[in-house]
Structures are given as C-alpha cells and as structure tokens.
Amino acid sequence: MTYLQLTYFHLATVFPAFLIGTYLLLNPKGTKRHKLLGKIYMALMLLTAIVTLFMSSVVGPALFNHFGYIHFFSLLVFYSVPSAYFSARNGNIAKHKSSMLGLYIGGILIAGSFTFMPGRLLHSWFFG
C-alpha cells in the first residue's frame, strides 16, 4: 500500500473511533449499547494503531528510518485496549475507566492534534 492509501485507511478507522469514543464518554455506562460500541471502538483503535506502524515518520527523527515519536501512541493503544477490556471483564471499573480515558485523550486527542502540525499530510490538506 502507498502512504496515501494507508492514510485513507487510517482515517477510515480513527474518525469513527473518535465519534464512538466521544459518544461513549458522554452517555451512560454499562448498558448493552455501551458494551457493544466499546468493543467496536476498541477494535477500531487497534486497527488504526496497526495501520500507523506501516506509515513511516515524515517529521522529526526516525528510528530505523521509519518510526517517529508519534508511533509511541500506537504502543499506548496496544497497552490500553487489552488493559481496559480485561479490567472491565474482571469488574475493575476504575481501571477500565482510566485506561479508556487515557486511550481517548492520548490515542485520539493528543495524537490527532500532532497530525495537524506543519510538515504533516493533514496539515497540508487543511491549511494548504
């Protein structure tokens, strides 16, 4: 896949994850809808994190001429999703909540804001 194709795939997974994650944060917890949407959200976040591993860094230093600082957010996703899932399954709702909030803030809001920095593709798309 080309970088542009990977970008489209990434956006196709992260944008619905953003919408679902926002919905989940603002609505009642523990319902059947919450559980279903939560699983979809986690799957989308894992997919988007996997896709990012194939996207080489274009801004700043790169490890192995590929991985940049933004790839640390992929590692955050790989840790947070299983942690949140198993915490909920084991009844540790406080840890589940913490993991999901960290995933949303770090994996979507912070990482997403970095994608709009000068030199990145989304910056050029939105700001010319």
Rank of each mutant, 00 (worst) to 15 (best):
Y8N: 15
M100Y: 00
Y8V: 00
M42G: 10
F78A: 08
T13S: 14
L101D: 13
A17W: 02
M100W: 05
T2R: 13
S56F: 12
M117H: 15
L103I: 01
F116I: 12
L122G: 04
H10W: 10
F54R: 03
S124Y: 09
F127V: 07
I93A: 08
Y79R: 07
A43S: 13
L76N: 15
G112H: 08
A111M: 07
T31D: 06
N27R: 06
Q5A: 12
F67S: 03
M1L: 10
P61I: 07
H96K: 03
A94E: 13
L122F: 08
L25M: 11
M45V: 02
G102T: 09
K35W: 07
I40W: 01
F114W: 05
S87V: 04
L44H: 03
R89Y: 06
T7M: 07
Y8L: 08
T31W: 01
A111V: 00
I105H: 07
L44N: 07
T31H: 01
L4H: 14
P118A: 00
S87D: 05
P28N: 05
W125N: 05
Y8A: 13
L11Y: 03
S99I: 00
F67R: 05
G106R: 00
I108K: 09
S98G: 04
H71V: 00
F54K: 06
A88M: 14
A17N: 14
H34L: 01
G68F: 02
L109A: 13
R120P: 13
A62N: 13
L63F: 04
P82L: 08
N65W: 06
P28G: 12
Y69F: 13
T2P: 12
F114C: 12
P16K: 06
Y85E: 09
H66I: 12
S56I: 01
R33E: 14
L46A: 03
Y3G: 14
K97Y: 05
L122Y: 12
P28D: 07
F114S: 11
F72M: 06
T115C: 04
I105F: 03
S98N: 09
Y3T: 14
M100D: 05
G68Q: 08
G60T: 11
V58H: 13
G30F: 11
I110N: 10
S56P: 15
S80I: 06
N92Y: 02
I40T: 08
L11V: 02
L121R: 12
F73P: 00
H10Y: 12
F86K: 12
S56G: 14
H66V: 04
L101F: 09
F127M: 05
G119V: 02
I110G: 15
A12F: 04
V81N: 04
L46G: 13
F67A: 06
T115W: 04
L19D: 12
L121V: 05
S99A: 15
Y3K: 03
I50L: 12
F126Y: 09
L63M: 00
I108N: 06
V58K: 15
L46S: 05
F78L: 12
L36Y: 11
Y23T: 10
A88E: 04
R33G: 10
L109W: 02
A94K: 09
L47E: 11
Y69P: 10
L76G: 08
